[in-house]
Amino acid sequence: MKVLVAVKRVIDYNVKVRVKPDNTGVDLANVKMAMNPFCEIAVEEAVRLKEKGVASEIVVVSIGPKASQEQIRTALALGADRGIHIETDEEVQSLEAAKLLKAVVEKEEPKLVILGKQSIDSDNNQTGQMLAALTGMGQGTFASEVVVDGDKVKVTREVDGGLMTVALNLPAVVTTDLRLNEPRYASLPNIMKAKKKPLDSMSPADLGVEIAPRLTTLKVEAPAARQAGIKVADVAELVDKLKNEAKVI
């Protein structure tokens, strides 16, 4: 069974995000970038399926600038077999990402597509769902457990207030939640070997998809700084402030 995993290059989760002084976006100049943590979980799940003998080949795909190949190489070092890079310097929004992935799905015909539930840069949580809708595949989102059984996959989903288990016919789309697994470290020999694994590069046009953003970013602002607290003299003053200033009681 072939598994397709989508990974995204995002600002590293350790980095304190800084808004550009002109409010047009987030400053990415010389900032550490890394694979989106949810995508790492997706790669790990695919590798575990391969180790169990369920998956036979893992294809990893990323959309973005040339440097996104670093994240594909990381996925290859973690155990994926080959990479596809859809190179574009344009901003790619969820719907275009889903369309591009759909084109890859049509070409590769995987039985299972695993994506992160969302990327930590724009936090949209849309691409997996859109891909399922565009391809007509079933979807198991926010997965905390994935069990493939014959031509079905059982996905335990993390939903408000509990867990929901769904059974999907393959091929299907699964998006990962944090508790699905803990990704492994890439070892040095595997990082070396990853450099020699095949990686195809193509453009969105090669896949017949036009990048045409539908959303315009008007302004990006950092959250307002928290106001410093004050000390009150006694309970009466506290009650008074809660009543008259904060108006919460």
């Binding site: 990704p183 492994r184 470290y185 070892s187 020999p189």
Partner: peptide, 10 residues
């Protein structure tokens, strides 16, 4: 821990 990876000799 899970995922323990011993260091390598270089």
């Amino acid at each position: 821990k899970d995922g323990y990876m011993p260091g390598m000799e270089l």
